[in-house]
């Protein structure tokens, strides 16, 4: 008995790492071209969602455990707020990154990278959380209904 979705499975298994890689490209190239934490987060989440759609939710939960989701959701926002608190401690205003380095422009770079990482973390895990919540609510889709 052949697996009826063998082409889908092979192609998506090939695509998932590239989608994740592209997400990180978008994240770290966001300073130079279109992109940033929001887009990268959604793309990274869509890699997990694609995996879940093709291989089933249980497999996706093994690859990206729900406990990571809980931690990531809060740590993303914490990283963002923490950057602001750090600038406070270093003597600047909330989220004024100029104080993070000797050269204010470099400080701005570090601050933007930290903040975008926080956004990436938060958006990725929230999108995955929402998908897990909806996906777990229903039985897996039958073979006939694909």
């Amino acid at each position: 008995m052949h697996d009826p979705h063998v082409i889908l499975k092979v192609i998506s298994k090939f695509l998932v790492p590239f989608i994740a890689l592209f997400a990180f490209y978008v994240q770290f190239h966001g300073d130079f071209g279109p992109g940033g934490g929001f887009q990268a987060g959604v793309i990274l989440a869509s890699a997990v969602i694609l995996y879940a759609l093709i291989f089933g939710l249980e497999a996706a939960k093994k690859a990206f455990p729900p406990s990571w989701v809980r931690i990531g959701m809060s740590s993303g926002v914490l990283l963002y707020g923490g950057t602001g608190v750090l600038t406070w401690i270093l003597g600047g205003d909330f989220l004024s990154y100029g104080v993070l380095a000797h050269d204010p422009a470099h400080g701005q770079h570090y601050g933007i990278i930290a903040v975008e990482l926080g956004v990436l973390c938060s958006v990725t895990t929230v999108m995955i959380a929402i998908f897990y919540a909806f996906g777990s609510r229903q039985p897996e889709v039958d073979e006939d209904n694909w």
Partner: peptide, 18 residues
């Protein structure tokens, strides 16, 4: 002030970080 090419990212993360 920021020296990054993408103005949208700069405004998003720095000027309007709040």
């Amino acid at each position: 002030e920021i020296h990054i090419p993408n103005v949208v990212t700069a405004v998003l993360a720095s000027y309007r970080g709040y």
